[in-house]
Write a protein that binds this DNA or RNA. Structure first.
Lengths: 313, 313
DNA sequence: ATGAAAGCGCTAACAG
DNA sequence: CTGTTAGCGCTTTCAT
């Protein structure tokens, strides 16, 4: 593997000159530039980013913490974040935590060791303090797809759970439902916490009844589509019909939600855009040498299909 | 951010001694070790992996090229690979290519620049030569979840497409189907190519008819579950029934395949295990300082559900 | 416009 | 068992 030195020797110039033609910030005469470029091509030289990182004290690498890679929503967030990062010359170190606090801690330690310039967190276990650890170290952090109280230095690209749950409950109320339940994922995600709370708040605003899923609700909202579909499965295996006996609403609008055998009423959120935006804001902050310190909320839209219907009760 | 030097100063020892207690390969007296560990803890010191990489000429980082992060199968491969890598202290740089040759090329260039110790390719566009580029540079490569002709130096963790397609066609033939079709993904994946070929071969072995999907087959096998489910959708929207008029078989056994409204007959493959194994073999090869040069085929099992039935024709 | 020299933070001989 | 020394490959003043 050839180095700057090899290229310099071959082109008959100094290392600094080669560095200058590559970085293209200090002027270089047309002639030497040609010679250097020829040498680079002949040797198949590729700058060693590791050495550059050590010297420049920035790695041009971002960390990405994903709670459930299997959930298409997070896959989209990761996709958007990763593509946007690469477009700007940043690499992405991915850590899938499956919401296990131990794995989260290890992931953060690894990212710190590798001196990533910033970290995108797409989801964490409840009560996790990993973002604080990072901020304390001076590493900018952006939360993608969920919110968090607190630290001003944090970047937050959030989904409008409040607005979404308001739409969901309004829709169900309009269909005559009065006994509503919310089902959450088994994983300890912070996102689930808030979404459930917003649902409960919307239910309370309308003086409807919030019941347990096992307690014969006429409508159930799920934390995500996978869970909604599993809920339909369970209900129908138990002999109930959807939406005849019970209406079900999902969240995310995964590709399969529109399948005509499912026709899931759900909330559409644009994971890819959230990921892209998170990456963009993070890189802007890194370049400016500061934290992200910015919050924005992305609208989520209710998509009514056939898993919800008039309340029979 | 404190460095080795800071720790050494604080503990009143040399940098090498600190390095020795960290790497734990050269013996260090219990007393100095205590003092050094105390200093590390007090300073919150975390070794700079970038510097270590530069010096040791290995980055403890793997590249992972994913064609479609949205497909749960690839998500599982990525999950398995990433977790196995982290367990062994390796970081993972992910590049989602969406099977675009240009993106693939950029991803490989980025991985080379960052001097990853090895690369896992979970899928590439047809005719891609990126693995050769990597091997030429001396970087070990393993293909996860698909095969490729050629290079002895390659590692290949493959799915048994031949056996799988044999099972699929045997199942369909036993149900009386004689006009069979295979539908592929729009993306130019190399995997799709071979699976279609193995399907065609199995059909030919039984003297059945291979027809176009538009040409009224009584059974359709799809390259993956998403496609199979989309096919069911299309058929039923067009007024056909599944499996009444047409039987449909998928591939992968994604979580939703077993939903009772879908009950997709499909082939189960263990993406997570394939990813895990790919990582493991790659790291073994990296440590041994050579290429992977190993192929293995993971069995895939037909799971019969209700999207296939007796041929009505 | 180009070159010489210093050093990012670490590991690895080699002495002692 | 511990310290000294010499770089890994690059960028970056600072001269020239």
């Amino acid at each position: 593997m050839s180095t700057l030195r090899d290229v310099a020797l071959r082109a008959g110039v100094s290392k600094s000159t080669v560095s200058n033609v590559i970085s293209d910030v200090v002027p270089v005469s047309a002639g030497t530039r040609k010679r250097v470029e020829a040498a680079i091509a002949e040797l198949g030289y590729a700058p060693n980013i590791v050495a550059r990182s050590l010297r420049s004290r920035t790695t041009f690498a971002l960390g990405l913490i994903v709670p459930e890679p299997t959930n298409p929503f997070y896959a989209m967030v990761a996709l958007g974040a990763e593509r946007a990062a690469h477009e700007r010359g940043y690499a992405v170190l991915v850590a899938n935590t499956e919401c296990e606090p131990k794995t989260e801690a290890e992931a953060v330690a690894a990212l710190i060791g590798r001196r990533v310039d910033g970290v995108i967190i797409a989801g964490v276990s409840q009560g996790s303090r990993i973002h604080e650890l990072l901020l304390e170290r001076g590493t900018p952090v952006v939360l993608a797809g969920f919110g968090a109280a607190g630290d001003e230095r944090l970047g937050v690209i959030d989904t409008d759970d409040e607005g979404a749950m308001e739409q969901v409950v309004a829709h169900l109320a309009a269909l005559g439902h009065r006994r509503l339940a919310f089902v959450r994922h088994h994983l300890d995600e912070t996102a689930g916490e808030r979404r459930a709370a917003e649902f409960a708040a919307a239910v309370a605003r309308r003086n409807l009844q919030l019941v347990d899923a096992a307690d014969e609700p006429t409508a159930i909202a799920a934390h995500n589509d996978a869970l909604a579909i599993a809920t339909i499965d369970r209900l129908e295996r138990d002999g109930a019909t959807v939406p005849g006996d019970v209406s079900v609403v999902g969240f995310d609008d995964v590709p399969l939600a529109c399948h005509h055998r499912i026709e899931l009423t759900t909330v559409r959120s644009d994971g890819r855009e959230i990921g892209r935006r998170a990456s963009q804001l993070l890189i802007d902050a890194v370049r400016a040498g500061g934290f992200v310190a910015h919050r924005e909320v992305h609208a989520a839209e209710l998509v009514v299909r056939s898993s919800t219907g008039r309340c029979a009760a």
